[in-house]
Design a protein around this nucleic acid. Structure first.
Lengths: 160, 160
DNA sequence: TCCTTTTACTTTAAGCCTAAAATAAAAGGA
DNA sequence: TCCTTTTATTTTAGGCTTAAAGTAAAAGGA
């Protein structure tokens, strides 16, 4: 219990207080808090989930449909996960899968008319929740953040 | 298939292209991409997970230990989830739980010496991975982002 | 003291997610 | 043609997460 021991006891972990660590911790916290709110509202008001909404949104952006692997890439989730989500949406009649005539291994998934209507309804609620969650953030700040996160995102690669 | 039908077919979902929606989508994508990389490395190099590391980090910051509910609040996860994570870390001998002498309902969880050593090792790797992931982001940009996300975070409430 | 309410935590059911193994079709040669 | 490799997807085992129900202790009266 001499002084050198005390110094060891009080040692800081690597990176404590570094700008990149602080930024990352905050980014993650904001994402978690927002996601938590959205999850609750999707559940309470529409008995659905954010991941399922994400699938509908991706399919909406591709009117000709998407193969499972394209869907998986665009949502940043695994193939197996997409299989599950698509199956659920299929059971609800919101999406439709047909075998690619050019390649029997691939399924092409697209929105049904019901799915399209459902997506519009969900998207409206989703947007209003986002606005609510970020009420108090000035529009100029929102623009700045959007710009900087856009840069960050393209730097991270991931999709595209 | 008249023109009004066509307009309906091409209708945009609510909020399309609004600054808050764009910001949110990008925030979420950055978080997901970063998390995915960290998850893989924690698994590959240390056979552990980000949530377990988060528990260790929270406990490191509270040398006197934390009650389960405080841990749950600080990590932004449910009580049930903390129960599970703490049990796993307990089985590995990294954390220790004792009943609060003032309140037999509460357990006070703290790092063991092994847990503390383990945390330092993980924290060093974690920091180097973060640095690697965000290599190419200038330091000034990192500071700006950290500041803005800090504001955003306190606006969202959530913890604290 | 006894009873009700609140608080802390655990358990359970169900959904998300991944990596790895399995399946199956396509592609590319010998 | 036949065989190997690659590609697309599904299945499986296992971990994270939540909400809701359950358990148990504390607190606050009558």
């Amino acid at each position: 219990m001499n002084s050198s021991k005390t110094i060891i006891e009080n040692a800081l972990p690597a990176g404590a207080g570094s700008p990149e660590l602080r930024m990352w911790v905050r980014l993650l916290a904001c994402a978690k808090i927002g996601e938590k709110q959205l999850r609750r509202r999707f559940e309470d008001e529409f008995d659905t989930t954010l991941p399922r909404f994400d699938v509908l949104a991706a399919l909406y952006r591709s009117p000709d449909g998407l193969r499972m692997s394209a869907l998986s890439r665009s949502l940043l989730v695994s193939n197996g996960n997409v299989t599950l989500l698509v199956r659920q949406l299929q059971e609800q009649g919101l999406v439709h899968a047909r075998t690619d005539p050019q390649d029997a291994r691939s399924a092409i998934v697209s929105l049904t008319e019901t799915g399209r209507e459902r997506f519009f309804m969900l998207a409206e609620a989703h947007h209003s929740w986002i606005s609510e969650i970020f009420v108090g953030v000035p529009d100029s700040r929102m623009q700045e953040l959007g710009l900087m996160l856009g840069e960050l995102r393209s730097l991270l690669g991931g999709d595209v």
